[in-house]
């Protein structure tokens, strides 16, 4: 450990692993140096998040921009660098911001912004989508009823549901769901305590408009 030699990457101030919730190195694993091809550690994820969020602090505080997740940058043209891509989404402007953080330098080395580009939903977004679904005058009651029937108990919150989100992009849809793609829209799979899934195939949660759309076919 004293020598960070060939193939080792010294993450400034972060050589030792500190257990955390995210990242591939599970809590309790032995501390070790990070090698170039390793997944990001929880500590690197936390560090990349902080660095990448610095440019959007105000908008993040206002809830307008959210950090979706951090992914190891695997660009083979930059193979010698330890880099992380932070995905941020601006819901009011419908813009995706991807900031590439060089973990050795501790700076954002690349930023790209686009409208109409939708990376997969984050866990937090799945929860937000479920809350919107539960708040829906019609579907909210339906979900609660199904939950009570399947679990023999009342649903307390969206956290009780098993959730899985996919990006919805319209394929010839009419109605308000046609804005999806520019809007950030999710399909949501909702798992009940009896291991069944609700039929949510016609439901789209529009996180930009904070609305539920019902697909018609």
């Amino acid at each position: 450990m004293a020598v960070a030699g060939a193939g080792m990457v010294t993450v400034a101030g972060a050589v030792l692993f500190i257990p955390g919730e995210q990242g591939s190195q599970a809590a309790g694993s032995a501390p070790r140096a990070v090698v170039q091809g390793d997944p990001l550690t929880a500590q690197e994820i936390a560090r990349a998040s902080t660095i990448a969020s610095a440019g959007s602090r105000e908008h993040m505080a206002a809830g307008q921009v959210k950090l979706l997740y951090v992914e190891r940058d695997d660009d083979k043209e930059a193979d010698e660098r330890r880099r992380a891509d932070a995905y941020l989404y601006d819901y009011s402007a419908d813009r995706l911001i991807v900031r590439t953080v060089d973990l050795d330098r501790g700076t954002v080395v690349e930023e790209s912004v686009a409208r109409g580009v939708q990376p997969p939903p984050s866990k937090a977004e799945e929860a937000t989508a479920a809350e919107l679904l539960l708040a829906h005058p019609q579907y909210g009651g339906g979900v609660r009823e199904s939950y009570a029937r399947a679990g023999g108990r009342q649903l307390r919150s969206a956290a009780d549901l098993g959730l899985r989100g996919l990006i919805f992009t319209p394929a010839g849809e009419r109605g308000p769901a046609r804005h999806c793609g520019i809007h950030r829209c999710l399909r949501l799979f909702v798992r009940l305590p009896d291991k069944t899934w609700l039929d949510t195939s016609r439901i789209v949660v529009d996180l930009s408009a904070k609305k539920i759309h019902t697909l018609e076919w």
């Binding site: 997969p120 939903p121 866990k123 899985r164 996919l166 992009t169 399909r187 697909l215």
Partner: peptide
């Protein structure tokens, strides 16, 4: 039947 049409890669890692 034409619908639905899923793209099943969400955040697959999760």
């Amino acid at each position: 039947s034409g619908r639905p049409r899923y793209h099943d890669i969400g955040a697959l890692g999760y």
